[in-house]
Design a protein around this nucleic acid. Sequence first.
RNA 1: UGGGGUGUAGCCAAGCGGUAAGGCAGCGGGUUUUGGUCCCGCCAUUCGGGGGUUCGAAUCCUCCCACCCCAGCCA
Length: 562
Amino acid sequence: MAEENNKKQSNFIKQIIDEDLAGGRFDRVHTRFPPEPNGYLHIGHAKSICLNFGLAEEYNGKCNLRFDDTNPLKEDREYIDAIIEDVHWLGFDWEDRLFFASDYFEQMYQYAVQLIKMGKAYVDDLSAEEIKEYRGTLTKPGKESPYRNRSVEENLDLFERMRKGEFKDGEKVLRAKIDMKSGNLNMRDPVMYRIIHASHPRTGNKWCIYPMYDWAHGLEDSIERITHSICTLEFEDHRPLYDWFLDQLGVFHPRQIEFARLNLTYTVMSKRKLLRLVEEGYVSGWDDPRMPTIAGMRRRGYSPEAIRDFADRIGVAKANSVVDFALLEHCVRDDLNKRAERRMVVLNPLKVIIDNYPDDQVEELEAENNPEDANAGTRTVPFSKIIYIEREDFREEAPRKWFRLAPGKEVRLKHAYYITCNEVIKDENGQIVELHCTYDPQSRGGWTQDGRKVKGTLHWVSAAQAIPVEVRLYEHLFLKENPEEVEEGQDFTANINPNSLKIIKTALAEPGLKEAKPGQRFQFLRQGYFCADLKDHSAEHPVFNRTVTLRDSWARIEKKLK
RNA sequence: UGGGGUGUAGCCAAGCGGUAAGGCAGCGGGUUUUGGUCCCGCCAUUCGGGGGUUCGAAUCCUCCCACCCCAGCCA
């Protein structure tokens, strides 16, 4: 695997861990990936997953998979299942350490009681709007709630009655008693519990009070004896609160470390926006091959190895950045080049009749499956008098440096013969309908002894044996590197690429491709990497998704010629 | 004088006082039965800016500038 060859480079998190280990703060490394089950995982999560599981692996430690299911209003069982599948697919194993924040609700409750008894938490009757008012602003300090100094006994009683369901949603909250004048708004008596009378995917109706992230997360980490709690930059301001709760309780205290989340060109990454793409029908679902979700990329044909390699290459730092999508594509090509078997598929067929080839003869020619892998073996492809080539591979008037087919020119048919074009047949509209060529019987296999120079090599299929297949050509979902770059009054959907999906129902493939299994990846010679669709592909109706094109240096040359 | 962060090439990113790694993209060349792959070469006299310390500064000090995050009973 690619990522195992080049040694992984250092980053600031490893340096912190090294210091913690050397200084004795911890004697082991235990991380966790803590998704909220309120949406599908995307490539940004993949970065975090690779980071957390990768660190554990490198330091001979462990990494837990933990669902942060503290908000029953937003979370769903569907997402839990999808997330589990995706993390596994990426190649990571949490063994028996699959946890849920909801597993700790009782323990969290007891800790809250402890804080109340210490006089460090209180039940507040202020409404949500009032709490907001009392919080102050970025530049003005907040003011204390009139309920802030209730007695411990009253707080204990009220909190218990909150749990029992005696109050309606929003009627009361439990707050930490910290500092309403803090410059850090998170420290202005943050809410610890709110009342939500809703059924939870795992605890059902057992609870009607649910812990807030800041209160819950540190406890989850502490309970699981996590050493390094890695999260994204926006939680940097929350670290003082994370530390405060754990310090007050005097419990095991993990170290929170923040890193910059991944951004990719031509991509939106927020769950909210991805949800919009799905709900408003811009894509077919969370696993649409154009989505930056793990499920989408899987269906597109990206391999877990390529995604992991990508995660290694982008590094980990604290500076906000936008990674070039081309790097991801490079990783995909790099992996698939070594592993994907080659096949010939003509997307836009042009009929070629080989006049001097025996009428009813069919030859089975040998073709290597992968020039990058000797162990991939060979297969056989049929050749006959009538074949199809790619329409784009023929030009009536050849431009400079063109070494594909043109009148009077000779090219090589991959694995087959040299052919020369003699005649172009057109219909009444001037459309080319077929080509008449002659072949050189001496060039069987695609080579002659005489040292003749044949620069161009084309892929082709034999007309009688070719099978029709559907091919789905994907491009970036957005036209601009930064989809958010829009005019006044518009949003990112204004930048959606109308040509992000082009369906070709009339492609012709070499017959062996009828054996393809859903999810199987190939390189279609001279075109790109393709993957049999996970959902729609069948032997009766083959469907292939274009994962990524091959690099196309002819396109570059032609551009320069103009 | 609200708090917290970040600035190294077009894009990521190492670097931790001894004179700017690596990858992607791009450009030029070679090999090639995929205009693919592979191989070779080029691509920051300079690290957001000014000042200072030092024999020596991207690294230390200082002032300034730019950008990002925070006012959910979301995570």
